[in-house]
Design a protein around this nucleic acid. Structure first.
Length: 492
RNA sequence: GGCGGCGUAGCCAAGCGGCCUAAGGCGACGGUUUGCAAAACCGUUAUUCGCCGGUUCGAAUCCGGCCGCCGCCUCCA
């Protein structure tokens, strides 16, 4: 059985079959670049990164498109309010495009640290104004939209299937509508395709309806069809965007093209911090940069970006995840365990005697690989997949204790670490910098001198002095490990 | 108010009708190893899956009720 994915549109798990054999187009709703990326972004983009990586592992040619929203996303969704980018630009006294540029870079920086593969195309909304205007024109021509006072709205009553993704019906929404309705709209649930810009609005473009700017939902429809076609295989995004954003995308796209917009809709669940929704007012809003630096009052230490990634993979993408210092701490410990095993295996693969691969190990490796793939095929069950990697760690450590194992055995273990833990899960790196040299050379030299002193003391059985040195180093955050071939050190 | 989700060991988290007397990780404890540690390895740590009923030969898994928590519907990935 091949890859099964849970499709939000049908609310069922389905066998994945791309439109074109062997090649897959994926569109994922990207960030609105008005601030640094936070833990919520990490969960979403790591989740879809896993999807892309696994599809490639299975041999598909994947085109991964993820937009950068740099215009049109308003501070509230009633089609009123300020443009998020514009508002932040005023606050930071920057040109909106400068602001968007700097946070776009910040975003890529963080995603690189989380080891997310870069999208093949990262289209900017502001770079596709022409195409967005074209789509509005098409919708007007087909009578799915109407113009009022320089703004254009989508007429939801014309699109009978509106609500099919989020399971809502228009009547109920109208009745329960809590937001103030723009008097220009014929129907409260209608949404803006194009908004007339007030003279002081920072970003605006000429259009057939006067100066204005695109509605937020429009960009995804336009860029998705431009780069991946009218019908795409997979569209991913956060659950909070299922309604209204994705519902509106479907309406616009299908009304304009007359064909299904997306075949598989995938939504990742949300993030909480210490059990509560993450919000600036709750003082639990943690950016990735803060997590990586350990600079937040909710965090006791800095966390390795890949430990954050591992914590995300520890649960299913459709389950919510609660970030807490304790959870991050546990993930960091587990991540270290994997990292240390991989490094030890690689060292042995290079130094152990040549010989035959252990048949028993080879058989176990095959079983682990099969179980890993079965888990991933089951709607990307990374929790199980990760547990398989931990079993591989145990297998590796057992082999390391077996003095007779050949280099080939370690080579095979390393290979599976690379494929499963590296290629697919992205928590095993191809190369690890010398741990000691990470921070600075001077520290390494000084610690090395102290280790030599202690080794001499141990040789002359002066254990009191040796232990005193170790204790002092421990107090300074340096942990010593005596191994058969010498003493190594690491930071606590 | 409308819609949806969740409640499994000290903590995180899989499992969603029989291979479950419930994966994996963290933590804790005992053992091997070590001059002593650390790391690693071996073992122990839920006869039970929020509570109460029901369906079934059989339920953590399905149904009903209750309790608790969370999310979306309003900017958010």
């Amino acid at each position: 059985m091949g890859l099964q994915l849970y499709n939000s549109l049908t609310r069922r798990q389905e066998e994945f079959e791309p439109l074109e054999k062997d090649s897959v187009g994926i569109y994922v709703c990207g960030p609105t670049v008005y601030g640094h990326a936070h833990l919520g972004h990490a969960k979403s983009y790591v989740s879809f990164d896993i999807l892309v990586r696994y599809l490639r592992y299975l041999g598909y040619r994947v085109t991964y498109v993820q937009n950068i929203t740099d215009v049109g996303h308003l501070t509230d969704d009633a089609d009123e309010g300020e443009d998020k980018i514009g508002e932040a630009a005023k606050r930071e006294k920057k040109h909106p495009m400068a602001l968007a540029e700097s946070y776009t870079r910040s975003y890529f920086e963080d995603m690189d640290k989380l080891n997310c593969v870069r999208p093949d195309i990262s289209p900017r909304a502001s770079g596709h104004i022409t195409e967005q205007i074209e789509l509005v024109k098409t919708l007007l021509a087909k009578s799915y939209a109407y113009e009022v006072n320089g703004s254009v709205y989508f007429d939801v009553s014309k699109f009978k299937e509106y609500g099919k993704l989020s399971g809502r019906n228009i009547e109920e929404m109208v009745a329960g509508s809590r937001v103030e309705v723009s008097p220009d709209k014929r129907n409260p649930v209608d949404f803006a395709l194009w908004k007339k810009a007030e003279p002081n609005h920072i970003m605006q473009w000429p259009s057939p309806w006067g100066m204005g700017y695109p509605g937020w939902h429009l960009e995804c429809s336009v860029m998705s069809m431009k780069y991946l076609g009218a019908t795409i295989d997979i569209h991913g995004g956060g659950l909070e965007n299922q309604f209204p954003h994705h519902e509106c995308e479907i309406a616009q796209s299908e009304a304009a093209n007359g064909v299904p917009f997306v075949r598989y809709w995938l939504h990742n669940n949300m993030v909480t911090v210490d059990g509560q929704k993450m919000g600036k007012s709750l003082n639990n809003f943690i950016t990735l940069k803060q997590a990586f630096a350990g600079q937040h009052e909710r965090l006791t230490k800095r966390y390795d970006p890949l430990a954050v990634r591992q914590l995300i993979l520890n649960s299913h993408y459709r389950s919510p995840i609660d970030f807490s210092d304790a959870a991050l701490f546990a993930a960091q410990s587990g991540y270290n365990k994997i990292t240390e095993a991989v490094q030890a295996v690689r060292k042995k693969a290079a130094t152990a005697p040549q010989g035959q691969i252990d048949g028993n190990v080879a058989e176990q490796l095959k079983q682990l690989k099969d179980r890993f793939e079965a888990a991933m095929n089951d709607d990307l069950n990374t929790s199980i997949a990760l547990s398989v990697v931990f079993e591989l760690v145990r297998l590796a450590n057992n082999a390391l204790q077996d003095g007779s194992a050949a280099a080939q055995t370690f080579g095979a273990i390393d290979d599976l670490f690379g494929r499963l833990g590296g290629e697919v899960l992205g928590i095993v790196k191809d190369e690890y910098p010398q741990l000691a040299a990470v921070d600075d050379e001077l520290t390494d030299m000084l610690v090395t001198i102290l280790i030599e002193q202690r080794s001499e003391a141990r040789k002359s059985k002066d254990f009191a002095r040796a232990d005193a040195l170790r204790t002092r180093l421990d107090e300074a955050g340096v942990v010593l490990e005596d191994k058969p071939d010498g003493t190594t050190w690491r930071k606590k």
